[in-house]
Amino acid sequence: MSERIVLASDHGGLELKKELVEGLREGGYTVFDIGTHTTESTDYPDYAHQAVRGMLEGSYDRCILVCGTGVGMAMTANRHRGARAVNCSDVFTARYSRAHNDSNVLCLGGRVVGFGLAWEIVKTWLTTPFGGDKRHIRRVNKIESE
């Protein structure tokens, strides 16, 4: 079974999200695009909350959230216990957010990164496993304890 990835964006991340949805489907992922689907102004927290709740309830394995900068989506996602969201604009951070922090929500800025870089970030994030070293497990457990 392929990994179930939910994507959501506000109007500022719509174009990048659409490109990522297409690329992920072509890559064999099971993709759920929960919106937005228009350029009308929307509120990113509405989409972030819906996507993260679905992931935490088991409907999806991981989330990719896109707004203008990625910041608002990450702040909203991290309000949920069990979500470990990273706002990412480089491949190094994508890799280590998975390997060391077991991130399960990737946030991108549609006005910050172009599709080429965003696609490399997404591929890296999706294919990098959590390292599982004792020190990283201890730290992730501390994140989840508060």
Rank of each mutant, 00 (worst) to 15 (best):
I34H: 00
E40I: 03
L24D: 08
H100E: 12
D46V: 13
V52H: 01
F115H: 06
G109I: 10
D10E: 06
V140S: 06
L7E: 03
H49P: 01
L106Q: 03
R79T: 11
V91N: 01
E15K: 15
H49N: 12
R138V: 12
E57G: 06
S59L: 10
E19K: 06
D43N: 14
C67M: 07
L24E: 10
T36I: 11
A51H: 02
V66M: 04
G27K: 11
E15C: 11
F130A: 13
E120I: 13
K142D: 10
V140A: 07
G116Q: 12
R79A: 09
S103M: 06
L7T: 10
K134G: 05
M1V: 15
T42H: 05
G82T: 05
F92A: 12
S89K: 05
L7K: 03
T38I: 11
E15H: 07
S89P: 02
K18S: 15
T30G: 04
A118T: 10
I34W: 02
D46E: 15
M1R: 13
R98H: 06
S97W: 00
R84Y: 05
K123V: 15
T38M: 04
G132S: 14
T127H: 11
E19P: 01
G82M: 06
I121D: 02
C88I: 14
P129H: 10
C88Q: 02
M73V: 13
R81I: 14
V21I: 14
G58E: 11
V105K: 00
C63Y: 02
M75L: 15
D10N: 14
V31T: 07
I34K: 01
S41L: 09
V6S: 08
I64G: 05
N101V: 14
Q50L: 14
C63M: 10
S9T: 14
H49L: 08
M75W: 04
A83L: 03
G23W: 04
G35C: 12
V122P: 00
T93N: 07
G132D: 13
S89T: 08
E40K: 14
L24G: 06
G27C: 13
D33E: 09
V140G: 05
M55C: 09
R111A: 13
T127Y: 04
D10T: 11
N101R: 01
A77N: 03
L108C: 05
T128S: 10
D10L: 14
